[in-house]
Amino acid sequence: MNIFRLAGDMTHLLSILVLLLKIYATKSCSGISRKTQELYAIVFVARYLDLFTDFISVYNTFMKVVFIASSLAIVWCMRFHPMVRRSYDRELDTFRHYFLVGASFALALILHEKFTVQEIFWAFSIYLEAVAILPQLVLLQRSGNVDNLTGQYIFFLGAYRAFYILNWIYRYLTEPHFTRWIACVSGVVQTALYADFFYYYFISWKNNSKLKLPA
């Protein structure tokens, strides 16, 4: 464990807490893409298949359970909680996200570390996570205005993978046989997808104005 990875995990956890706070405090999920949340639930379930077979550390197991439980809880809330589901922007959240699932799985069948079920699902989860934010970014472009909590949620979600890139650089420099090309390349793509959002987020923060995304 290094400081970059810890910062990344904490930022990731923070993004989920901010989203839970928004949904719980405002009893609303307006501006949140349910499709992105469903993709994250798939990412965590597919990535943590080794939850009961490989024990790395208490921290690792605890965080895996938190990520799986929180992502499923958010999807459940957005689908079945009577008040929350009413505020879902159904007509704006129209990204055909099942294409992302299919493409990621197809890529995982071609590019993986080992041709085993667990490794293929791991690679699948890495590729899917890189593109999972797309429905959310499309929804924001369509709705134009971003409320504070949603903006913070997306900012932390993007920042966590940026910390992971520093972690991979650090591990590459300090650990002789460390290579994680799949995660690394995918992580760079993932962070790059947030680039324009980061740009507008920074501008709005600098001008202390409300975050507006160009339609």
């Binding site: 990875r5 490989d54 790395i56 690792n60 080992k114 972690n167 995660a183």
Partner: peptide, 10 residues
Amino acid sequence: ADVVAEHDEL
């Protein structure tokens, strides 16, 4: 042996 390190990252 180039044992693929188990995935110790989240």
